[in-house]
Design a protein around this nucleic acid. Structure first.
Lengths: 108, 108
DNA sequence: CCGATGCTTAGCCTGCACGCTAAATTCTCC
DNA sequence: GGAGAATTTAGCGTGCAGGCTAAGCATCGG
């Protein structure tokens, strides 16, 4: 099977493809994008409660969104008394920028 | 409800939020990302058959992926005899770059 | 015009994403 | 240590994304 047929993406190491998968999946839901945006705008960290308050959703629903973001590496948390403080990991978003870069250096 | 609570994203016009929605959803599936990458690498256009050949999937499955990409505005097609030639719309990917930009110009 | 080729449409099946409520957990404060 | 706040975990229901096969539609070659 030719390289052309297998496709360019296969040249990326598997770990990185998994990372893309996690990050793009995480970004696919509007609530999760909103969490990231708000978190970013608020200076990078918020408690779970503050995040949950943004939505009409039941709290556990938001908890799950947060977990998706966290397992994609876009968020981390620290315990602070009975609060959980989540903070954004902006570096992880670089992955998206990396991916987009393929479309700039387009062959002509 | 405060602006802060509603969240920054709401300031974007609705049309643009819908566009984000379509584009991020389209990018959420690895097959669709692969289609875009390959299409880009191959110079921007390929027939439906060439695209379908990249995958083990049954052809109709690929057809649907293509349609998702197209309705997100990431692809367009032209008929050419009995072939359908799809070409990438790289400008549409700018939306993603736009979205990411929020995380650069972070406050302060 | 007829069969082959290229591709989509129609329609079915299955699993999982994402919503919910109720219960558990962990910490705080009196 | 017990009430109460903050948050997660458990577990359920439903819709839809994404896989498939079979059928339909153009178009081309002979």
């Amino acid at each position: 099977m030719s390289d052309m047929k297998r496709g360019i993406a296969k040249r990326e190491p598997k770990a990185k493809r998994d990372a893309y998968e996690a990050v793009f999946t995480a970004l696919a839901h509007p609530a999760r994008r909103q969490i990231l945006l708000t978190l970013n705008f608020e200076g990078g960290s918020m408690t779970a409660g503050e995040i949950a308050d943004m939505f009409e959703h039941a709290w556990p629903t938001t908890t799950r969104h947060i977990q998706v973001l966290e397992s994609a590496g876009l968020l981390h948390h620290a315990r602070e008394g009975r609060n959980r403080v989540y903070h954004i990991d902006r570096r992880r978003l670089e992955l998206v920028r990396d991916w987009l870069a393929w479309f700039l250096k387009d062959p002509h």
